[in-house]
């Protein structure tokens, strides 16, 4: 590579970084603005909007609602996904490839399509729009992710570990809980954090499957329609920090050997 092309590459790179981070920085900055309107000029800074966020009871209950949904759908997705991963990577049966395709399909379906499908399906089952429907919708979306991460981790587990456990007297159940599950744990924790983030972040499914109570993204969306104040920026900044930290942690856990 000549110096010339390297210089251009670097400029493109930095332009890309700026493109990504300027909107984020502006959003965070506006959350500290001492005025009711979002936009320049900024005359002075304040923590006022963060106080408003903390004292906003409605907002807190929306947070709690989203959090409950994220936790529940993640726990379900981990149980089902781990079971599917064990089945797909160890058992031998006919039609395995079809089961694999069906389990991973929700990961690649467009959100709007699966949201509509889930809405129709849950109504046929008699599940009213609301928390249960949202949790189930998020679970279906998250299972493929847990399954794939789990299968990748299982593939790297030496066969001899399970055989050694059996050799020492363990049956399948004991060797799963005492040997395989601890081996899977870091990957499952990582996958779990990602599941929580996707659930927390999801709009389309929550919108279609939710009842009167909004999840956080749905709530923010409804607030936007009635006019923006820097409170939105404060909420978003809090979410940004939490998700960034969790995302990085998850990425590390899943990459761990």
């Amino acid at each position: 590579m000549t110096r010339h092309t390297r210089l251009i590459m670097q400029m493109v790179y930095w332009a890309f970084v700026l493109y990504l981070f300027i909107p984020l920085s502006l959003m965070v900055l506006m959350g500290f603005k001492d005025s009711k309107f979002i936009g320049f000029p900024i005359k002075s800074l304040t923590l006022h909007w963060y106080k408003v966020v903390i004292q906003d009871l409605e907002l807190m209950s929306v947070f709690a609602y989203s959090f409950t949904i994220a936790i529940s759908s993640t726990v379900l997705a981990i149980i089902i996904g781990t079971w599917a991963a064990m089945l797909l990577s160890q058992a031998k049966f006919k039609g395995k490839i079809i089961v694999f395709a069906l389990i991973t399909l929700p990961a690649v379906l467009p959100g709007i399509i699966s949201a509509i499908a889930l809405r129709i399906y849950s109504q046929t089952l008699g599940i009213e729009p609301g928390m249960t429907a949202v949790i189930l919708g998020h679970t279906v979306h998250n299972v493929p992710f847990v399954t794939l991460v789990g299968m990748a981790r299982l593939n790297s587990q030496p066969m001899s570990h399970v055989e050694a456990a059996q050799d020492l007297g363990a049956d399948n159940v004991i060797s799963f809980f005492r040997i395989t599950l601890p081996y899977l744990t870091p990957a499952l924790v990582g996958a779990g954090i990602f599941c929580m983030l996707t659930s927390f972040d999801d709009f389309v499914r929550s919108f279609f499957l939710g009842g009167y109570e909004p999840t956080l993204p749905v709530y923010i969306f409804s607030q936007l329609r009635t006019g923006m104040s820097p409170e939105i920026n404060a909420i978003s900044s809090v979410v940004l920090v939490i998700t960034a930290v969790m995302g990085l942690a998850a990425e590390r856990l899943m990459r761990r050997k």
Partner: peptide
């Protein structure tokens, strides 16, 4: 008789020690 009910034990080539 499956391995867990055989009174025979094995030392594996990679030792297969449980890492955790």
């Amino acid at each position: 008789i499956p391995p867990n009910r055989r009174n025979v034990n094995m030392v594996f080539q990679d030792y297969a020690l449980f890492p955790h």
